[in-house]
Lab assay of single mutants.
Amino acid sequence: MAAGGDHGSPDSYRSPLASRYASPEMCFVFSDRYKFRTWRQLWLWLAEAEQTLGLPITDEQIQEMKSNLENIDFKMAAEEEKRLRHDVMAHVHTFGHCCPKAAGIIHLGATSCYVGDNTDLIILRNALDLLLPKLARVISRLADFAKERASLPTLGFTHFQPAQLTTVGKRCCLWIQDLCMDLQNLKRVRDDLRFRGVKGTTGTQASFLQLFEGDDHKVEQLDKMVTEKAGFKRAFIITGQTYTRKVDIEVLSVLASLGASVHKICTDIRLLANLKEMEEPFEKQQIGSSAMPYKRNPMRSERCCSLARHLMTLVMDPLQTASVQWFERTLDDSANRRICLAEAFLTADTILNTLQNISEGLVVYPKVIERRIRQELPFMATENIIMAMVKAGGSRQDCHEKIRVLSQQAASVVKQEGGDNDLIERIQVDAYFSPIHSQLDHLLDPSSFTGRASQQVQRFLEEEVYPLLKPYESVMKVKAELCL
């Protein structure tokens, strides 16, 4: 049975990233139509530049190519590739079939990587351009969430054990800070992308030097003109047959890092959902379990974690691919890159769409948070109580021993009897502590235990987050809708 299948058929496997999760716009960027249309555009740009620099290419040939950029006979191309065992030459023939007058000058002087690699770089750039505003929107939604809850005390956790208090907004800023680093890295790697350009079979530009009869300047002009037509500021000066596969490492490393950030955020949300302090959106008709109707599973956060793990592992592909590119190139890269580049971007696209949807509907339960604080705060307040007693004339050592005994009794009630923490009640009825009984409410005010959390939130948002989001103001209103 021949390899390949009808990918629109229910009898043929289709990647869930495309069929179930990723956005239509990201799927289109990695589609065959987008790819092969870009090949034709690159052939047109090459012909236009070659004509401008004096090669015998007519206006009629150029116009014929322009008129057929979208006229792609995919069936013919597939048949040609089956016959020739070469995808680029299959599309040269297919393009030439609908451009008979231009057929002889299509791909003039070029090698397969002229269309293959340059198209990949265009796709990487455009895919990054799709991700950047999506990530900015996630940051914006979380920034709104953090600002609104900047002063809401909550129990902090280290080692997932109760620690000092923080605020809900401050905790959210930990998430935002990681995503801001990801946004900066995505922008950097996007701006650092260079075009492969017009380089020939081993990167020496020998074929173009021959076409222009040894004119170095025209060869350099050709490279520059096509690079500018493709919208790049610069091209690699040095290439082998391909652009260095280190570029793929750079791009997928940034995406993998984004995956790590999203995994951490969504894990926190899942843990908070278990504590009943916070939940992701839950639709009115949504079913959490087929057997347990009360369940409210954090399905979206779980999906993000599941896909983020996949995204983090994909960076190993370009690392290994770059390491086995012998001399000017081997074909070890080809099949692998067809999979890992598309999957990385479709996965990143999915987790950003999902995280935006989550961040637009996060639900906080202040009463649950308050109750958990009441359970733990008495123990945390013991040092403040000791200091207040010393100020009232008591002995630190005597007070410490009193607190120690009462704390152990209260802990026994919590752990052995399943009761509430009654340390404060014990202190309130103990005559030894009568000098500070009137101060206990103040000493137990949760806001006095959150330090500068709310001020940190305000400063972080104003100095770091809002300036970073400013270039994306025009796209901030787009909502994230999930079908599944």
Rank of each mutant, 00 (worst) to 15 (best):
L131A: 10
L258G: 06
I176N: 06
E343P: 09
L484K: 12
L443K: 02
R20F: 03
E401K: 14
T201M: 00
R196S: 12
E417I: 07
H91Q: 11
E383K: 01
M316A: 07
G214T: 08
Q221R: 12
K66M: 09
F74S: 07
V429W: 03
L174E: 14
S23T: 08
A78V: 09
D144R: 14
Q397G: 10
R234I: 06
Q210P: 13
E250W: 14
A291S: 06
Q285S: 13
D333N: 04
I249T: 09
R33A: 03
D120I: 06
H97F: 12
A308N: 03
T382H: 05
R309D: 06
R426T: 05
V88N: 03
A260P: 01
M225W: 06
A431D: 14
C180I: 14
I238V: 10
G419M: 13
L222V: 09
Q325P: 01
L377M: 01
D11S: 04
E383S: 04
F145A: 08
R374V: 07
L186W: 13
F157K: 09
E228L: 05
S412F: 14
N336A: 12
H310T: 11
E425H: 13
L469T: 15
G240T: 10
T158W: 03
V413W: 10
E25Q: 09
P24V: 11
G5T: 14
I369K: 01
K233W: 10
S257M: 09
L121D: 00
G156L: 01
I369A: 10
L252Y: 07
V315F: 12
I57D: 01
L406S: 07
Q61E: 05
H310W: 09
V262Y: 04
E283D: 05
D332N: 02
D216Y: 08
S207Q: 04
I436R: 03
S140P: 04
C172Y: 15
W326T: 07
V168F: 11
A102P: 04
E328Q: 02
D178V: 11
T347I: 08
C27S: 03
W175R: 02
T201Q: 02
C98K: 07
R404N: 11
P56R: 11
W39E: 09
S15R: 15
Q161M: 11
H217E: 14
A90N: 15
D248C: 12
G96I: 06
S253P: 01
R14M: 14
L128R: 03
T58Y: 07
E370F: 14
I238S: 05
L130N: 06
A410G: 06
H7R: 14
Q164L: 12
A411Y: 05
A381M: 07
E283V: 10
L128S: 13
R37A: 14
E81M: 02
I139E: 07
N297A: 00
V324E: 04
E376V: 06
A256E: 05
L362A: 13
R374D: 10
T52M: 08
A410D: 14
Q416S: 14
S306N: 03
R245P: 01
M225G: 05
M380N: 15
A235V: 10
H97Q: 10
A392H: 08
A18H: 11
F236C: 13
A308I: 02
M312A: 11
Q428I: 12
V168A: 09
K284I: 15
N353M: 09
L314G: 13
R14V: 14
I106F: 10
L444E: 04
T354P: 08
K224M: 08
S151A: 09
N384Q: 10
Q356W: 05
E148C: 08
T111G: 04
W39L: 03
D117V: 01
I237M: 10
V29L: 06
P378H: 03
Y34R: 04
T167S: 13
L272T: 07
V254D: 07
S151K: 15
V429I: 07
M292G: 02
Y432K: 11
F433M: 09
A77M: 15
M312P: 04
K295A: 03
L362F: 05
L131S: 14
Q51S: 11
Q455D: 01
A453R: 01
G54W: 03
L443D: 04
R20E: 04
L377A: 03
V478L: 11
Q51W: 01
I385C: 13
K229S: 14
I351R: 01
I106S: 05
Q409M: 10
E228G: 06
I72E: 05
C113L: 08
C399D: 10
I436V: 08
D441W: 04
D6C: 07
L406T: 07
G116P: 09
S112Y: 03
V368R: 11
D182Y: 03
S15G: 15
S434E: 13
F212D: 08
L132A: 09
T201L: 04
R149F: 14
D398Y: 08
L461N: 14
S257A: 12
D445Y: 12
P153L: 02
Y365K: 05
K134T: 12
Q164W: 06
V115I: 10
R149Y: 15
N71H: 05
L108D: 00
V29Q: 07
A150Q: 11
G197Y: 01
D248R: 02
H310G: 08
E279G: 05
G451F: 04
T242N: 15
A163G: 09
T202N: 11
I57K: 05
K233Q: 05
G203T: 01
E464H: 00
K284S: 10
D120E: 09
P471Y: 14
A77G: 06
N274G: 02
T58K: 06
Q397Y: 06
D332W: 04
L406G: 05
L128A: 13
A392D: 01
D332E: 01
D191S: 11
I62V: 07
C399W: 06
T167H: 15
K367T: 01
D192S: 09
L444K: 03
K470P: 09
A381Q: 13
R40G: 09
P298M: 05
L128W: 07
S301A: 03
L186G: 14
F345P: 01
Q286G: 02
V390S: 07
T58Q: 08
P281E: 09
D398W: 11
V465G: 09
L307D: 00
P366H: 10
L362Q: 06
N274V: 12
H159F: 02
W45I: 13
G156D: 00
L468E: 13
C266R: 02
L179M: 08
E250T: 09
F460V: 10
K402Q: 13
A235L: 12
E280N: 00
S454H: 09
Q51E: 03
L307T: 14
S151W: 12
G169T: 06
K367S: 11
L275A: 12
L121A: 09
C399N: 10
N185R: 12
V315A: 04
E360G: 09
A322N: 12
R296A: 07
K367V: 03
K415T: 13
Q409R: 07
A480L: 13
Q456D: 03
P471R: 14
V457C: 09
A230V: 09
K35E: 09
G231I: 03
Q320N: 07
C113Y: 01
R426A: 08
I238E: 04
A392T: 04
G5H: 04
R85E: 06
F345H: 08
N126G: 09
S447T: 11
C305S: 14
R338W: 00
G419H: 10
F460I: 11
Q375E: 06
M89T: 03
L211F: 08
V413I: 12
A78Q: 15
N274F: 10
C27R: 14
D144F: 10
R137W: 08
Q408N: 15
V405Q: 00
R372W: 03
Y34P: 00
D332G: 01
V219H: 07
L258P: 00
W45L: 05
I369R: 05
I385E: 00
M278L: 09
L444Q: 05
Y21W: 15
F449P: 02
I62F: 06
Q63S: 03
T350K: 04
G259V: 01
I358A: 15
T382A: 06
G169H: 02
V115W: 03
N357L: 07
V364I: 05
Q408A: 12
S454L: 12
Q286D: 02
